[in-house]
Design a protein around this nucleic acid. Structure first.
Lengths: 131, 131, 131, 131
DNA sequence: GTGGTCTAGACCACC
DNA sequence: GTGGTCTAGACCACA
C-alpha cells in the first residue's frame, strides 16, 4: 500500500492518511485481518511525527474500520455498522451542506455540481473493484 | 437582504456571511453597484463581532465580488469571476472529494449520495428569496 | 463543576476527566447547551497538559455527548443515539467481559459481583437526580 | 487443563492465561500441590512468546496462587488469598466503576446491565469444565 | 518490536 | 481569548 500526503493541502495530514487507508480497505487492497503498517514505520516513511499517524489510526478505529491489538498493531476489522441510520445521515448531510455552501460561493449550479459529483464518484468507484 | 447565521454549524461564521452575500449577488438580490450594509451595522444585526463581518467582506473583496471605496463602504463589483475556470473547478473538486471520502466511510452508495445532494440543494435553492 | 483526578490511578487521566464530565452531564449539573470549561482553563486547574484535556473532550464529542464550535468552545449537546443497538451491546459486553475476568481472578462469585454492581450502580444513580 | 486464548480480545494475553489458571484452580481442576505445565511447553502449545507465559506465572506467584520451586517448576499453592478482603473489594469496585461509566455513556439502565452481567457470567461459568 | 499515555511547546484559523 | 494540528520526546505495558 502506497500512501501519499500533500503538505500544502487544506486537509489535515491525519485526515489524508485516514482517507487513503479507508479507501485502500474499500478497494480490497488491504484485506480483513491484515495488519496496517506500524505507526512508527508509516511515520518514518512519510517523514512525519508518529503521533500524527496514531491520530489517523485512532479515527479509523472509531469508525469501526480497523481494530487495535495492544503491542501487536492495527488490523483491518470485519466491516460492521457502527452508527445508527440517523447518525449516518446526519454526518452525510453535514458534508453535503458544506459542499453546497462551497458550490454556491463558487457560483456553480446544482446541475453542474451533481454532474461533477457523479463523475468523480464514478471515477473513485472504478478504482475500487471490490465495492 | 436577509442574512442568517447558524451558530451550531461547522462552517465558520465569516464564511457563512460571505457565502450568503455571494449568493444574494448571484441571485440578483443585490445589484451591481449597490452598497452592502456597513460592517458595524451588520455586526449589530447579527449580534456578532465586527471583526467577523470585516473578515467576510475582506474575503469578498479578495474574490473580486465586492469592491471597497475608502470611507464610503463596500459595493457589489461589476466584475465577478476572479477565479479562473480551472481554479474554481479545483476548489469544487476538493470539496467533492471530501464528500466522497465521508460517504465511503459511512457506507453510502453513489446513488444515495447523489439523491441526497439533489434534495438538499433543492431545499437550499428554494430557501433563497428569488433565484 | 468540580473535577478531581487521581494521579496514581490505573485509569488514564483523559478517561478520568471524560468519565466525570459524562457523569456531570447525566446528573444535570451541566445543562444542554452549556459551555464546558475551556481546554486551557481546565488544564491549568488540574495542572496537566492541555492536550490531555483536549483528548478527553474529543472522546466526549465522539460519543455524541458534547459538540465543539471552533474558536468558541465545547458545549453540552442534545443527547442523541449515535451507535446502533448492536454496537452499543458490543461495547457493553466488552466491559462486562472484562469485569467478569477480573471477578474470577479475584475469586468473587457471580452473586457477589451482581450484588456489588447493583449496590454501586444504585449509589451512582442516586447521585444523578435527572436520569 | 485446557487454556484458550483469544487474540482479538482486549485483555492482555498474559492476563487471559493467569485468569484461566486461576479459574481452573478455583474450580478444583488443578489440585493443591499439582504442577503447572512448564513455561516453554505452554508457550509452544499456545504458539506464543514464552515471556508472555512467564509473565502470567509471575503474576500468579505474586498473587500467592502458585508457588515456584527453583529448577522444578510451578505448583498450585496451599494458601490462596493473598489480597486482604478490602484490597480485593477495592479492585473489584474499580472494575465495576469502569463498567458503570461505560454503561452510563452508552445509555444503558442499571437493570439492563445487571441482566446482561448475569447472562454473560452464567455463560462463562457454564463454559468452565467443572465448577 | 508494538501501541498507549502524557508533557511541552509551537503555529494556525477563528471570534 | 477559543479549538485544531503537528512536532519532539519521554515513559509505560505488552509480546
Amino acid at each position: 500500500m502506497q500512501i501519499r500526503i500533500v503538505a500544502g493541502s487544506n486537509a489535515a495530514l491525519y485526515k489524508q492518511i485516514a482517507d487513503q487507508i479507508s479507501r485502500s480497505i474499500a478497494a480490497g487492497e488491504l484485506q480483513v485481518g491484515q495488519m496496517l503498517p506500524s505507526v512508527r514505520q508509516l511515520a518514518r516513511e512519510l517523514v512525519i511525527n508518529p503521533n500524527t499517524v496514531a491520530k489517523a489510526y485512532a479515527d479509523l478505529v472509531q469508525a469501526g474500520i480497523v481494530e487495535t491489538q495492544a503491542a501487536k498493531g492495527f488490523f483491518v476489522s470485519k466491516r460492521r455498522q457502527v452508527y445508527t441510520k440517523t447518525e449516518r445521515l446526519r454526518r452525510l448531510d453535514e458534508s453535503i451542506q458544506s459542499l453546497i455552501n462551497q458550490s454556491l460561493t463558487l457560483g456553480f449550479s446544482a446541475d453542474e455540481v451533481l454532474d461533477r459529483v457523479r463523475e468523480l464518484f464514478g471515477k473513485v468507484l472504478r478504482s475500487l473493484p471490490d465495492s
